[in-house]
Amino acid sequence: GSPLAQQIKNIHSFIHQAKAAGRMDEVRTLQENLHQLMHEYFQQ
């Protein structure tokens, strides 16, 4: 897949890990990143 698709997959797993660790501030930051990446992805 594209590097962007790979990045989106990575962030999904980072979010999963951050949630499991209870780091909600990190989850929020990652979700904002994910949102931006998704936006770029669909602009392609």
Rank of each mutant, 00 (worst) to 15 (best):
F14A: 15
D25T: 05
E40S: 07
I15F: 02
I11L: 14
N10P: 01
K9F: 08
I8D: 00
H39Y: 11
K9M: 10
A20Q: 10
F42C: 09
F42R: 10
L34P: 00
P3K: 13
P3W: 15
N10C: 15
I8P: 00
A20Y: 04
L30D: 00
A5S: 09
L30V: 01
A20P: 01
G22F: 04
A18H: 02
N10H: 07
S2I: 14
K19I: 13
F42I: 08
L30G: 02
R23T: 02
H39E: 09
I11E: 00
T29N: 08
P3S: 14
H12L: 15
K19Q: 11
Q17C: 14
Q36K: 13
T29Y: 08
R28Y: 08
A18T: 01
S2M: 11
H16A: 14
F42D: 05
Q31S: 08
V27C: 03
Q7M: 12
N33P: 01
H35G: 04
E32Y: 12
H35S: 09
Q44P: 05
V27W: 04
P3F: 14
N33G: 06
I11S: 01
Q36M: 10
I15Q: 00
M24S: 05
P3N: 14
K19M: 15
G22L: 04
M38C: 12
N10Y: 09
V27A: 05
T29V: 12
D25C: 15
Q6H: 05
Q31M: 14
L4C: 07
K9A: 11
L4I: 09
R28V: 07
R23N: 09
E26D: 07
L37I: 05
H39V: 12
L34Q: 01
A21Q: 07
L4F: 05
F14N: 07
S2Y: 09
I15K: 01
S13I: 14
P3G: 12
Q43P: 05
R28E: 05
M24G: 04
D25I: 04
F14R: 15
A18D: 00
Q31N: 05
F42M: 11
S2G: 10
E32N: 09
H12R: 15
Q7L: 13
E26P: 01
R28M: 07
A21S: 05
E32S: 08
Q7C: 08
M24Q: 05
I8W: 04
M38P: 00
L37Q: 01
A18Q: 02
L37W: 02
E26F: 06
L4A: 03
S13Y: 14
G22D: 03
G1Y: 02
H12D: 02
A21F: 04
Q44H: 10
I8A: 01
N33M: 15
Q43Y: 07
L37D: 00
R23C: 08
K9H: 07
D25S: 06
A21P: 01
L30Q: 02
S13C: 15
F14E: 10
H12P: 00
T29M: 13
H12M: 15
L4S: 02
F42V: 06
Q17H: 06
V27Q: 01
N33A: 15
K19R: 13
P3C: 15
Q44F: 12
A21N: 06
A18Y: 04
D25E: 10
L4P: 02
F42Q: 07
Q17P: 00
P3Q: 13
K19S: 05
L4K: 02
V27F: 04
P3V: 12
Q7F: 08
Y41I: 05
N10K: 14
L4R: 03
K19W: 14
H39W: 12
E32Q: 11
E32M: 13
R28K: 10
L30F: 04
G1M: 12
F14W: 13
M24W: 15
K9W: 09
M24Y: 12
Q36N: 08
Y41T: 03
G1L: 13
A20K: 11
Q6P: 02
Q31E: 10
N33E: 15
L37S: 01
A20C: 14
R23F: 04
F42A: 09
F42K: 08
L34I: 03
I15A: 01
Q36A: 11
D25H: 07
Q44E: 08
Q31P: 01
R28D: 03
F42G: 05
E26G: 01
R23W: 04
E32G: 06
R23H: 06
A18I: 03
H16C: 15
R28N: 04
I11K: 01
M38R: 03
A21T: 04
Q31V: 11
H12T: 09
A18C: 11
Q44W: 13
A20S: 07
A20L: 12
A5R: 10
G1K: 11
A5N: 05
Q6R: 07
Q6Y: 05
Q6E: 11
M38E: 03
A18L: 08
E32L: 12
Y41G: 02
I11F: 06
I15D: 00
H16Y: 11
G22R: 04
E26R: 07
Y41N: 03
Q6T: 08
L30E: 01
H12C: 12
P3A: 14
S2P: 09
Q31A: 07
Q36G: 04
G1S: 12
E40W: 14
E32I: 12
H39P: 01
M24K: 04
S13A: 14
S2C: 15
K9R: 10
A21K: 05
Q44L: 12
R23P: 01
H39I: 13
Q43K: 13
Q7R: 11
N33T: 15
Q43E: 08
F14H: 08
I11Q: 02
H39S: 08
Q7W: 14
E40T: 08
A21C: 09
H39A: 11
V27R: 01
M38S: 02
E40D: 07
L4N: 02
H12N: 07
A21I: 04
E26N: 03
Y41L: 09
H35K: 14
I8H: 00
T29G: 05
N10W: 14
Q43W: 08
M24V: 07
R28H: 06
L30Y: 04
L34M: 04
Y41V: 04
Q36L: 11
R28Q: 07
L30T: 00
N33C: 09
H39N: 09
I11T: 03
D25V: 04
H16F: 11
I15W: 02
L30M: 04
K19N: 04
H16D: 08
L34T: 00
